[in-house]
Design a binder for these strands. Structure first.
Length: 426
DNA sequence: ATCACGGTTTGCA
DNA sequence: CTAACGTGCAAACCGTGAT
């Protein structure tokens, strides 16, 4: 049985802010979503106050002030950079690593003796903390679903000191543990399925583990059935140590203030397309079609609502930002209607396939194509070395009045020289 | 009756 | 002062027209 570890950073975004501002140690911290909309990360002190994840900021602003909570806009440049450092260190501890999200990864520990991996896990925690300042917790078990659960236990129970290894439990102990955990803690069991399971009398992890897999499949789906098998120690979800290319790439943002005009929407659509195209090239794919959508504010039911979308097939699959933006803007013009307060716009790249498998067409012009490829390469390189958006399409605009609010962003400590004077001044 | 499809909804993190 | 609620992805689902 090959052990799997799930390493997860504790309160990741809050911890990132603390790394560069140690005075925040022990202080309550929250980090807000894009547009300073709602709470997406909380330090332990804030969790203890009972402020839930996803809570809209405007509803807790007063409470936060009362408790002296330190509030940050999200700073993805900072979190992404620290994430890369943490992942780099973690990768040294196993030849098989699956980076699952910005703050967690699985490590395949095949070949390691499962008898006692706790010391190894403690070593991992110590090295990551020393190298980055970020505290992590580690769960170890036979399947990814169980490792996730073990990680949860490692975080929740202080006596485990950040590491929980299910191999250290016998059957009776495991039964007792699982009977004390709500079914909603299981990876893949979200709000909706939890509600339905509870209605059927399945309320704990143990209940779900001992449910009949065929019945679960019939009532729910293969996905939930797999989850049940994984709880029983049967591997159904393999470790994916090489990133599979995305089937679709979405780029969308809410606006800082409502937008009414086609000009502003065009700028937004143009820059979202630029970001998506960068991701597309990064994974070495081309897109066969591009979708555009607009949204008014659904939280204001009194205002006229309109959420159009349109899918535009491309003449030939491409990864050229200019061609993609052209198509997206043409689509935008077709769905745009004046007289609405738009809150959000976005684009989707679809029908993706590897550049190498792109079908040749009679109308391909090899000279034009190679120029396009070279131009995109140079753009990507300049933006990579000199900072994002150093070189962009004119259609993205300069003022960008629609940009999201981020009034409480910390400096980009690790990725922006220009931000450092702020740091020193503080 | 069955399948492939595309668009929409659901669900998760 | 006021108003203020994220994003990205895949799987499941569903209606349609072709076979």
């Amino acid at each position: 049985m090959a052990p799997v570890a799930l390493v997860d950073c504790n309160n990741f975004y809050a911890s990132c802010e603390r790394v560069f501002n140690p005075r925040l140690e022990g202080q309550p911290i929250i980090v807000l979503s894009n547009n300073d909309g709602c709470v997406i990360a909380r330090s332990n002190e804030v969790k203890a106050l009972g402020i839930p994840m996803g809570e809209p900021w405007f509803r807790i602003e007063k409470l936060a002030k009362r408790h002296g909570i330190v509030v940050f806009s999200s700073n993805y440049a900072l979190y992404g950079d620290l994430s890369a450092r943490v992942m780099g260190i973690l990768g040294r501890f196993s030849p098989r690593q699956e980076i699952y999200s910005i703050d967690e990864c699985f490590l395949g520990l095949d070949g390691f003796n499962p008898c006692d991996l706790r010391a190894y896990a403690q070593k991992i925690r110590q090295v990551v903390k020393q190298g980055t300042g970020i505290p992590v917790s580690i769960g170890i078990a036979a399947t990814k679903t169980l490792a996730k659960l073990a990680n949860h236990v490692a975080k929740k129970r202080v006596q485990f000191e950040g590491v929980c290894d299910f191999w250290q439990f016998n059957c009776a102990e495991l039964d007792a543990l699982f009977s004390a955990l709500p079914v909603s803690e299981v990876w893949g069991i979200g709000r909706r399925i939890t509600r339905r399971l509870e209605a059927m009398g399945i309320t704990t992890v143990q209940d779900l583990k001992s449910a009949d897999p065929r019945w679960i499949r019939q009532q729910f789906s293969v996905t939930v059935e797999r989850t049940v098998s994984e709880l029983n120690g049967t591997v159904c979800i393999e470790l994916e140590d090489h990133a599979t290319p995305k089937q679709q790439i979405i780029s969308s943002r809410s606006f800082g203030t409502p937008v009414t005009g086609l000009q502003d929407l065009s700028e937004a659509v143009c820059s979202y397309t630029t970001r998506a195209a960068e991701k597309l090239r990064h994974q070495g794919s081309v897109a066969g079609s591009i979708g555009v959508f607009l949204e008014t504010n659904p939280f204001k039911p009194d205002e006229p609502q309109y959420h159009p979308s349109l899918l535009i097939p491309l003449v030939a699959p491409t990864d050229d930002t200019r061609l993609l933006a052209q198509a997206a803007l043409k689509g935008l013009e077709r769905i745009f209607k004046p007289g609405f307060l738009y809150k959000k716009a976005g684009i989707l790249l679809m029908s993706l396939c590897p550049r190498s498998e792109k079908p040749q067409s009679l109308f391909d012009n090899p000279l034009v194509e190679s120029r396009s490829a070279k131009l995109m390469q140079i753009m990507d390189q300049i933006n990579r070395t000199m900072g994002p958006d150093t070189l962009k399409l004119a259609g993205s605009g300069l003022q960008q009045p629609w940009r999201m609010r981020r009034s409480r962003k910390s400096p980009n400590y690790t990725t922006c020289w220009a931000d450092l004077p702020t740091v020193i001044a503080n």
